[in-house]
Structure formats: structure tokens, C-alpha cells
Amino acid sequence: MNETTAFHDGERRMQVLAGETAIADRNIAGLSDSVIGGARPFIAKQSMAVLASTDARGAVWASVVFGKPGFLHTDDGHAIAIDVPYKDRDLADPLWENMAAQADLGMLFIELGSRRRYRVNGTVQRLDSLGAGVAIREAYPNCPKYIQRRHLRQIGESKLPVQAAHGTVLRGAVAEIATRADTLFVASRHDRAGADASHRGGQPGFVELVDDTTLRIPDYHGNSLFNTLGNIAADGRAGLCILDFTHGQVLQLTGTAAVLWNQDDPHGETGGTRRYWEFKVQQWILRDLPHAMEWEYLDASPFNPAVRHAEPDTGNTP
């Protein structure tokens, strides 16, 4: 971290380029080293969380874990428990090996149906057969923009072990999942600040397939903190996770990312920022979700800029 700011050099560089340092300094007031009291029951009632982790080779991964409400909880606001016993873990997800290899963990608690989200970054202090315990380093709320509302009607029984496929290029079903998505999750990291998990959303088709190893994603106006883009600027390693709500699958991708400034945007796809970021895929995993789930699509965010193609992946049961 820079000695005179709460931000690391990558974040500050992005804020300066965007001309948003004053807004960032104002918004950072919500940052805390513990989960505020009002957010603790919110975390405890969640059925899913997004986790950002790093494997032994240094690759960054985004994961989504599911469980019955209460499997995530914090008693004192200084540590979070993730109660997923060994028998209930999807070992096709790199997450569990990653937590043993690298202690930094980013966490995003997001309730799609209400557009509420709360972000926590910390360090794994316990990983055993019962679950994990994470010491909190920083915690803060995020705004509800760009979240498509979905209600999780039901989580079924475990279907472990799941089927999983692996690859390095974006073709066929893998490319389709990426390009019809309206919701994705991003993992990034910084050597000193640690891992971070974030959300990105937009109209279906907001993720563009540039070629069979490259995705381009518009970067909209946000909270001006530039946590994700700052990590990308400083480190470059990143991971994506995309839920296929219709077919009950999850696509995880790891690779590198770069920020593109002052781009041509004749259709207004960036919402006026003229900013994109490109993700270069090094490896992907496509696997079935470990539970049968029923999602009800409610509506799209009213803040989404327009795009030119694709239909929503509603996940509604026919």
C-alpha cells in the first residue's frame, strides 16, 4: 500500500487515469477491518458465496460455493466460517486445494434476488474436515448496480462427484456460456493486498468473444475504488466464473487480463467510460453444479448499458 492512501499503487493509478481520486477517497470511508453488525445476519442467510483463490502455480480462480443458509457466518465480525464439510466439497473445483496452497481469500456475499452484496477479503487460518475459518482483513458494502435479479427457488441434494471438462480454447458450449452470460464473477489479486472477488453484470452479450482465447468486457461506472482493475494493472492474473443458470453448470476460467482505455465505443457499450478489459484464457473448467437448483429470473438491472445481441439466460424452469 502507498503510505499516504488506503489504496495500493495499481488502484491509485486507475483512479488517476479515470479522474476519480476524490470520489475514491470519499467512498473508501465504508472500508472496515471487520464485518459491520448489520451485515452479519445478511451473510448468515446466504445460500451462495463467491470466493477468489490462488493455486500453487500462481493462477487465480473464481469459485461459487453453495449451502443451506447458515453455512456462512461470523460471530464477532473478525472472522468468517465457511461450513462445508469434506464430504460435501466439489473437488473438481480448484478452490479447496488453493486454500491449502495460498492463504489469501477474497469473498463476495451476493444476494441476486435483492441486489445486495458485501465484500470481504481475508486470510485462511483454518482448513479442516469441517470447513474453513477466514480472518478478515477488510470488509465493505458494494452498490447494487448491474445485478440481474434472480431468486433461488430451491437447492437440491448433493450430486457429487460431478462431471467436469477441461480445456484451453473457447469454442462450442464454452463460448456460448460466456457470450450469453449476463452475470459473471471476477477474481483478482495483489501481492500485498491479497485476493479479491467481484461481480460484473450487463445485458446478455456484454461479454464479447474476440477470438478463441480472448474475451473483452466493458467496464462501467462503479464506486471509483477500482479494486479489480487496480489488481489487474498491478498483477495481471485473474479468474472468471460464469454460472449457467439454465443448464446447471459453472464455467471457471483462469488467465491474465489487461485494461484498455479510451477505446472507440460508437454504440455506448461501456456506458460512457470508453473503458474495456480483455481476458486471455489459459485454462478453463466446465463442470456440473454440485446441487440441482431452480432459479427464477426476475428482471435486469436498469443501469445496464445496451448491447447488440443475445438473449437472457433466465434459468427459469419450463
Rank of each mutant, 00 (worst) to 15 (best):
T317P: 09
S34L: 07
N223Q: 03
V259L: 03
E20V: 14
Q283T: 14
M107H: 11
E311T: 13
N304Q: 10
Q282P: 08
G172A: 03
T21D: 09
E269R: 15
E97L: 14
D191C: 03
V84C: 10
A22K: 13
E157V: 13
A103F: 01
G133M: 10
T254L: 09
T21R: 12
H309T: 14
L215Y: 02
P141V: 01
Q283V: 12
I217G: 05
F109C: 10
H73T: 08
V162H: 01
D212G: 09
S158I: 11
G202A: 06
V84E: 07
L260F: 10
S47Q: 11
T254F: 07
W261D: 13
H291K: 03
M48C: 13
V307R: 05
F185Q: 10
H78C: 09
G167V: 07
I217E: 01
Q283Y: 14
G202N: 02
D90M: 10
A6D: 14
P266Q: 04
D219Q: 04
I110P: 02
I217T: 03
G202L: 02
D299T: 07
A81I: 04
Q148T: 13
A56K: 11
L251Y: 02
D212H: 10
T21V: 15
R115E: 12
A59N: 13
V210F: 06
L17P: 07
A292G: 12
D235H: 04
G255Q: 01
D235Y: 03
N262I: 10
D104V: 09
T168P: 01
H73Q: 09
T213A: 12
G58I: 04
T179P: 11
K87E: 15
G133W: 00
G156R: 10
D219W: 05
D83R: 13
R89Q: 04
F7E: 00
K145P: 03
G19V: 09
E157M: 12
S158C: 11
L240Q: 00
G131C: 03
R237V: 05
G272M: 04
Q252M: 15
G201C: 05
H267I: 10
P318V: 07
R116Y: 08
Q282L: 14
L17Q: 15
D264C: 11
S198Y: 08
A233R: 09
E208S: 12
F7W: 03
Q15M: 13
A175T: 05
S129H: 12
T254Y: 07
I43M: 00
D9I: 14
W295F: 09
L95E: 06
E269K: 15
Q263I: 07
G167P: 04
